[in-house]
Simulated scan of single mutants.
Amino acid sequence: MGALENIHKENTDFSHLAKIHPCLGGEAHATFGRIHLPVSPTCNIQCKFCKRDCNSDEERPGVANGILAPEDAVETVRKALELCPQITVVGIAGPGDTLATPYALETFRLVNEAYPNLVKCLSTNGLLLARYAQDLYDAGVRTVTVTVNAVESDILSQINSSVVLDGQVYCGKEAAVKLIAAQLEGIRLASKLGMVVKVNSVLIPGINEDHIGLIAKTVKEAGASLYNIIPLIPQHKLSHIPAPTCEQLNQARETAETQLEVFRHCKHCRADACGIPGQLDLSYKLYGTLKRLETFSHG
């Protein structure tokens, strides 16, 4: 049975997905591909290290060549499969938060109807994950990545500036408390529904480097199956903090592994990545004609 035919399993589990999802397992990372559909333009939180943009130059999260309309997603996936038949995963990872607007959920519904055998994967800050977890599951999403940079408000308030929830803006520790509670509830509910949950943390020297063990323990208890620790890219309001050294990154990963399995192959992918990670990226061929947003939001 071929890889794509074997993906669609009602009782999908982590061990199976790790073999065919390049962002869940090392075995799959160099073998299978993914396409990111950049349908989510805005965000509902502001992280101090995050600077979203539309360009074709930077290789990092929060960046795409432009914004794709949900109604164009199915045709885009078709073209992507022609360019890279090894694609097994359709992901949405921004460039804003995927649940801050309805476009990601709308896109998954369309893509799942056309390509039920492809894995559907969502990345989110988790603020609205509990609210939309059932809808995501019904739309075929089976893997979710939640970025959790701290599980204590004193630490998170040094990383996150604000949260916008139901039209209300929260700042400082109040924002941190709301975000942490929402993330953990979202992880619990997504896991309970049967989705595989991976947690990402940005390692920020001097802020959360000694907090990684507690994050790992806390998200595991909430239902996460995998942990991915990625180094800070110094920019925006944290441009003065140097990226962690290899020693700091390895130490954090070793600490986390006492609690939870750690993924060590992350490539800091763009929100419009296409192809097999670490190999030739096909995003320009796929998205080269997308229009740049004239009023791209950094809110």
Results as ranks from 00 to 15, higher is better:
Arg131Val: 13
Ala18Asn: 03
Leu99Cys: 08
Ala80Ile: 00
Leu249Lys: 02
Ser56Arg: 14
Asp138Gln: 10
Ile20Ser: 05
Arg52Val: 05
Arg253Asn: 01
Val177His: 12
Ser153Trp: 04
Leu286Thr: 03
Ser239Gly: 14
Leu122Pro: 01
Pro244Gly: 06
Gly66Lys: 08
Met195Ile: 06
Asp166Asn: 08
Pro22His: 00
Cys246Tyr: 07
Leu136Pro: 04
Val151Arg: 11
Gly299Leu: 11
Asp210Arg: 01
Arg188Phe: 00
Leu4Ser: 07
Pro61Gln: 04
Val111Asp: 07
Val202Ser: 14
Leu290Asn: 02
Gln259Phe: 14
Asp57Met: 08
Glu75Trp: 00
Pro244Thr: 01
Lys217Glu: 15
Leu179Ser: 09
Gly213Lys: 01
Leu203Val: 05
Ala224Val: 02
Asp210Trp: 02
Pro95Cys: 01
Gly213Tyr: 03
Gly213Arg: 04
Arg270Asn: 11
Ala130Leu: 03
Leu136Ser: 03
Ala216Gln: 10
Ile155Cys: 14
Gly66Thr: 06
Tyr137Cys: 03
Cys269Ile: 11
Ala181Glu: 15
Thr101His: 00
Gly288Ser: 09
Ile7Pro: 02
Lys220Glu: 09
Leu156Arg: 07
Gln248Trp: 00
Leu24Glu: 05
Glu152Gln: 13
Leu99Trp: 00
Gly25Asn: 06
Val164Ser: 12
Pro102Tyr: 10
Val202Thr: 15
Leu290Ser: 03
Ala80Lys: 03
Gly140Leu: 06
Cys171Leu: 12
Cys84His: 01
Ala273Ile: 04
Cys269Glu: 15
Cys269Pro: 12
Glu257Leu: 09
Leu280Gly: 00
Ala190Arg: 01
Val141Ile: 12
Arg292Val: 03
Leu129Trp: 00
Lys19Arg: 11
Ala80Gly: 02
Gly288Asp: 11
Gln259Tyr: 15
Ala271Ser: 13
Thr88Ile: 10
Ile233Asn: 14
Gly167Met: 07
Val169Phe: 00
Ser157Cys: 14
Cys54Thr: 01
Gly213Val: 02
Thr218Met: 07
His265Trp: 15
Asp166Leu: 05
Ile230Gln: 12
Leu128His: 04
Ala104Leu: 07
Ala28Met: 10
Cys50His: 10
